[in-house]
Design a protein around this nucleic acid. Structure first.
Length: 599
RNA sequence: GGGACCGUAGCUCAAUUUGGUUAGAGCACCGGACUGUCGAUCCGGAGGUUGCGGGUUCGAAUCCCGUCGGUCUCGCCA
């Protein structure tokens, strides 16, 4: 039985300063390290607030309590949990540790209680050694003691707290929506949950609360938000987990600009909390412009280095790669890298291999030196063409041009990542900078060549930005939508749209997408019904909380800002999930496993 | 579904390129010394199915095949 008194902390381990000298204090925490000098023992005591040095001096003759305490201190080991009482004293000028916030002082222990011992830990929760991620996840409770993880978890809390406070101040209401819902036909693969009470039926975990939040608007709730878990059963990446968290919000009687303004307010506060700058005016870039200048709809605008469409110039050369691409309806774009003429052949080969991952057959290039193009494809570039290229790209001596020639989508798919890769290599991607931008005027739909049909670019409930519905029906590919994404440093941090609140327009959009009346009724009938009963104009947006926190702490992986994330194969080394279940459980669900287990 | 890299002591790594004696080091752990350290130091000790299985070879951590796991990535992710 632990006495109550030893649990009654007066301070935490990051708190004590010079002004506390002389105070009698009690601290609890973990032994981060112990330094036994024979006659004096130092213990660094750690909790999530910081580290305080505790000293055990040689006990006075006849001081039995001091003797016991000293002997106990002698037995302490890393990660034991202890409570100490003692007096704060100055360390002495030559003993101050500038690495610690509490480095001016130390606590002289008068009493020590071991609250719990610890086995020798698999790894030390400090910042010095890197540990394999699988090991970190298996022993996450130890990993979470590392200052970086503590910082990520607490900042994450502060960020969600800031989000809530801004939205609360704007009159939003946080409302929970179901996790057990129904599968929807489009989008990502659903996680399914069998229904015991409805044989052969399944719930699906929500990919997002999209339909529910629209229905909340029909319900007159006017301004909704939710910090909510979303589930998508797709392959994982460093920035993609099967379950992730969104700040989801929806508003009635608003324009696109209103939603963007509220989002800016939220992000401004988030950045303030995280110690990052947020611009007065967030740049707004149209989708067309983004694709043209950056080749991607989530441009990294920390640096310029634009792409240039040089189809007209390149088509007039004798270089077959260029002319063939143009003749088959493709384009030629170039990336002008200032100072890139210094790249060696070997470095260019690395970039060639890099773009091969994105499906490029090769990477044409030419350097600009002493007023003329040299190397690579220079021999195909007449003096006239060279001048035109310089005019089009603004290239100067010392630059290099990289070219890609193919269909427009393929060209952009290759050059956009190359642009970022080159910028990283040139040191243009400062991880402390947050360069936010909005992307607007997305196309409503894109043509899916494989399936021979139109797909929503955003989702099927996005309002078309067209006056004439007939025009929409006759040329869906030309239609823009009232959709918008918020981007930071080349990462999509969130997106949303003004929704369709008119049932007739919704039916037309389903028609374009090839969702027949029967399927629409079956899958979304409840939303279509709701739209018949006084749905207000509404729109909203969702922010990826995990990605925002990841950017705010410059973490390389989403796993570093999630307390208990999954590995790339979707497993949890801590719990062993996913795992087998009992035959009894399967029987209750009327399920039968027909494939033998891998093990 | 495809590509790349990785797997050696509890942890982080070396030895793999060029197959060759007993697989080494730091940290952690165990024992000892030390009255001012602070990622303490010093002395000593213990600790190994080189992920797993098979093959080549006189001989495999090293070469080959398979497999499991991890990371990155293309596809995928409205």
């Amino acid at each position: 039985m632990i006495p109550d008194a030893v649990l009654n902390r007066t301070h935490n381990c990051g708190q004590l300063r010079e002004s506390d000298i002389g105070a009698e204090v009690r601290l609890c925490g973990w032994v981060r390290s112990y330094r036994d000098h024979g006659g004096v023992i130092f213990v660094d005591l750690r909790d999530r607030y910081g580290i305080t040095q505790v000293v055990f001096d040689t006990p006075e003759e006849g001081d039995q309590a001091g003797q016991d305490s000293y002997e106990l201190a002698d037995s302490l080991r890393n990660e034991w949990v202890i409570s100490i009482a003692g007096v704060v004293r100055h360390r002495g000028e030559d003993r101050i540790n500038p690495k610690l916030d509490t480095g001016q002082i130390e606590v002289v222990s008068t009493e020590l209680t071991v609250l719990n011992q610890s086995d020798s830990v698999p790894f030390e929760p400090d910042s010095f050694t890197s540990v394999a991620e699988e090991t970190r996840l298996k022993y996450r409770y130890i990993d979470l003691r590392r200052p970086e993880m503590t910082r990520a978890m607490t900042l994450r809390h502060e960020i969600t707290s800031a989000m809530r406070s801004v939205l609360d101040g704007e009159g939003f209401v946080e409302i929970e929506t179901p996790f057990l819902t129904r599968s929807t036909p489009e989008g990502a693969r659903d996680f399914l949950v069998p229904s015991r009470m409805n044989q052969a039926d399944f719930y699906a975990l929500p990919q997002s609360p999209q339909l529910f939040k629209q229905i909340l608007m029909v319900g007159g709730l006017d301004r909704y938000y939710q910090v909510v878990r979303c589930f998508r059963d797709e392959d994982l990446r460093a920035d993609r987990q099967p379950e992730f968290t969104q700040l989801d919000l929806e508003m009635s009687f608003v324009t696109q600009r209103d939603v963007m303004n509220v989002t800016n307010s939220v992000l401004r506060k988030v950045c303030q909390v995280a110690g990052k700058d947020f611009p007065e005016e967030v740049p707004v870039i149209t989708h067309d412009e983004a694709m043209d200048k950056y080749g991607i709809d989530r441009p990294d605008i920390r640096f310029e280095m634009f792409l240039h469409d040089v189809s007209g110039i390149a088509g007039a050369t004798d270089f077959k790669v260029f002319t063939a691409a143009i003749e088959s309806g493709g384009i030629v774009k170039t990336l002008c890298v200032p100072g890139g003429a210094k790249f060696t052949r070997k470095e260019i080969d690395v970039y060639t291999a890099f773009v091969a991952d994105y499906g490029a057959k090769g990477l044409a290039w030419s350097k600009l030196e002493d007023g003329a193009f040299a190397g690579g494809v220079a021999k195909f570039l007449s003096p006239e063409v060279q001048q035109q290229l310089r005019d089009a790209t603004g290239a100067n001596d010392g630059d290099i041009l990289f070219f890609a020639a193919a269909g427009a989508d393929d060209v952009n798919r290759v050059l956009a990542p190359l642009r970022v890769r080159v910028a990283e290599d040139l040191g243009l991607c400062d991880s402390e900078t947050c360069a936010w931008c909005w992307i607007t005027e997305f196309p409503l739909v894109s043509y899916n060549e494989q399936e021979k049909r139109w797909d929503s670019l955003h989702h099927p409930f996005t309002m078309p930005a067209v006056e004439d519905i007939e025009q929409l029906m006759s040329d869906p590919g030309a239609a823009k939508s009232l959709a918008y994404d918020i981007v930071c440093n080349g990462t999509e941090m969130g997106g949303g749209s003004i929704r369709i609140h008119d049932r007739h327009i919704q039916e037309k959009v389903f028609e374009i997408l090839g969702i027949g009346p029967q399927e629409a009724t079956e899958k979304f009938g409840f939303l279509l019904d709701a739209l018949r009963f006084g749905a207000p104009p509404h729109g909203g947006l969702a922010l990826g909380l995990d990605r925002i926190v990841m950017e705010m702490v410059s973490a390389p992986s989403l796993r570093d800002v999630i307390a208990f994330p999954k590995t790339q194969r979707g497993t949890c080394p801590l719990t062993g999930a996913p795992g087998e279940v009992d035959d009894k459980q399967l029987a209750e669900l009327d399920l039968k496993i027909i494939v033998p287990h891998k093990n």
